[in-house]
Amino acid sequence: MKALLAQTRAEVTMTLRRGETLLLTLGIPLLLLVFFSEVRILPTPGIASVDLVTPGILALAIMSTSMVSLGIATGFERGYGVLERLGVTPLGRGRLLAAKMLAIVAIEVLQALCIVGVGLLLGWHPTGGLTGGLVAAAACLLGSVAFGGLGLAMAGRLRAEVNLAAANGLYLVLLLLGGMVVPLSSLPVGIRSVAEVLPAAALSSTLHEAIGPVSGYTGCWIVLVVWGLGAPLLAVATFRFRGD
């Protein structure tokens, strides 16, 4: 337990000290939240922008931390031989991964507090009450697992620099297609059909349904569960602790 706690603390500290990570996990989501809440450019007749945007930004924050931040950091740690080295200490690979997951959860709680706080200050009125909050927490957890699996799957196979580019590229694509800022209903039908089978749209839709003013698309929970199971399995099957 001492080893797990020490590693978790180290993971959280290192993550929060990385300027680029803070920008990605807190800076960009908060900037988008404020911008799209205050500047009425989204096609949301009858709905306050902040009510629509806040659940989507929560989804974006989960994706930023679980997939991009975790994936990029893990990729470089693999390249530097850190994962390999830790694998031959009593910490072991299992507790190393557990520490990473705990650190991600801790950072996501911090993100959620910031985003919800800023959203409320901007006039957000969450729906669903306590049940909605619990459902949203479950969706966030499932989304974390799905995106974490994707991030680790890439980090465990790609060279660190390639992984960096791939994670950022995927982040941008999923940001645009994930219903996080741009509503899914605004996308052309063909693109929307593709977007709806991706984890970003599934997470943002489940969050919109739980604590937002609009319903998710049919099957969004099923898509999220499939990614939540499939992505970690993919990571387990393909991950390599050794660098290239």
């Binding site: 180290a10 290192m14 530097y80 031989g81 850190v82 080295r85 031959v88 200490t89 072991g92």
Partner: peptide
């Protein structure tokens, strides 16, 4: 693992630490 000490040829340490 509790009874062995390992020094890799290179790396193995978090660069920021």
């Amino acid at each position: 693992v509790a009874d062995i000490g390992v020094m890799l040829q290179q790396g193995g340490v978090y660069p920021v630490m």
